[in-house]
């Protein structure tokens, strides 16, 4: 049995358990997805879509990542190489033992999504946390309405989860995919352009939307959504801050009186309007 959130609270929440990487998928030149199990091939913990986990190579460091999907016996984290730990993670091979603790954070409000049409908007590695929810909707297809995904990256090579985008998700009933890249390139006959403009061009009916991507994408997509009549409580995003403890104690990931690790990372636009405009 995977460890439940309640059980995690009983054990020392700051000490990781030993886990191993059983599969590594090269998503883009700088993003890899790591499939992680416990030593006895179980799920290290059972995260809700949108929840987080602390992954460590203890001699190098420990950092918080969104869990991008879970399987019967494993969890997945899609990680971009941007710093000391993530560069080291990109060097490891299958079979590597790692430390892991979690799940942390609130996750997406699944009950709120039940029966509704959902628009997913992602940019670059921003699809990683969103994918956990898309996978939940795909697994329990009958619980949700129409699914639409708008996803963009700098180039074709930079698109994460290509297998999902071009093979798996197109087969899912009542699911529309809109994939775009920033600039024209040879061998690409899909849409070209930035995500915010594409969202506006597609003129969606107001519905629940989950968006995650670089700040510049969020900045220009929000006004487009508001212009189309999306309500603040239906615009949902996930935030990122530097984290150390993951349980709302070490102090650094606060925005106002909220801790992103504990009260987030999922926030609605309605909630964000109550928080300070910066950090």
């Amino acid at each position: 049995m995977a460890v439940t959130v309640e059980q995690v609270k009983e054990i020392n929440p700051l000490v990781p358990i030993k886990a191993k990487v059983i599969k590594i998928v090269q998503e883009t030149p700088d993003v890899k997805t790591f499939h992680i199990t416990t030593i006895d091939d179980k799920k290290p913990f059972d995260p809700l879509p949108g929840q987080l986990g602390m992954l460590s190579l203890p001699a190098i460091g420990e950092a918080m990542f969104s869990v991008t999907n879970k399987g019967e016996n494993h969890i997945e984290m899609a990680i971009k190489s941007v710093g000391q730990l993530t560069e080291a993670l990109h060097e490891i091979e299958e079979g590597q033992e790692v430390g892991i603790r979690g799940p942390y954070g609130n996750g997406f409000p699944l009950d709120y999504f039940k029966g509704k049409d959902i628009l997913f908007i992602g940019g670059g590695i921003g699809l990683a946390p969103v994918r956990s929810l898309i996978m939940e909707c795909v697994r329990n297809r009958e619980n949700y309405g129409k699914l639409s995904v708008v996803y963009g990256a700098r180039s074709k090579a930079d698109l994460c989860f290509k297998e999902d985008l071009f093979e798996n998700w197109p087969k899912v009933p009542n699911m529309d995919l809109y994939v775009t890249i920033d600039r024209e390139e040879e061998g690409w006959d899909g849409h070209v352009g930035f995500v915010p403009a594409y969202v506006e061009e597609l003129a969606f009916q107001p519905q629940v939307t989950v968006l995650c991507g670089p700040p510049v994408m969020i900045k220009f997509t929000l006004p487009a959504l508001q212009k189309m009549g999306f309500a603040d409580q239906d615009i949902i995003t996930t935030l990122e801050m530097r984290m150390k403890c993951g349980i709302g104690k070490c102090g650094r990931c606060n925005i106002g009186s909220c801790y992103v690790c504990l009260d987030g990372p999922v926030f609605t636009m309605e909630q964000l309007k109550e928080l300070p405009p910066e950090y």
Binding site: A63, G83, Q84, L85, M241, R242, K244, G251, R252, Y279
Partner: peptide, 21 residues
């Protein structure tokens, strides 16, 4: 673990280069 301080720049420095404070 050791005491840290919100007065230091590295405190909120993120791996990608962004620092919210």
């Amino acid at each position: 673990r050791c005491w840290d301080t919100c007065m230091f720049g590295e405190y909120t420095q993120m791996a990608g280069g962004h620092n919210p404070r």
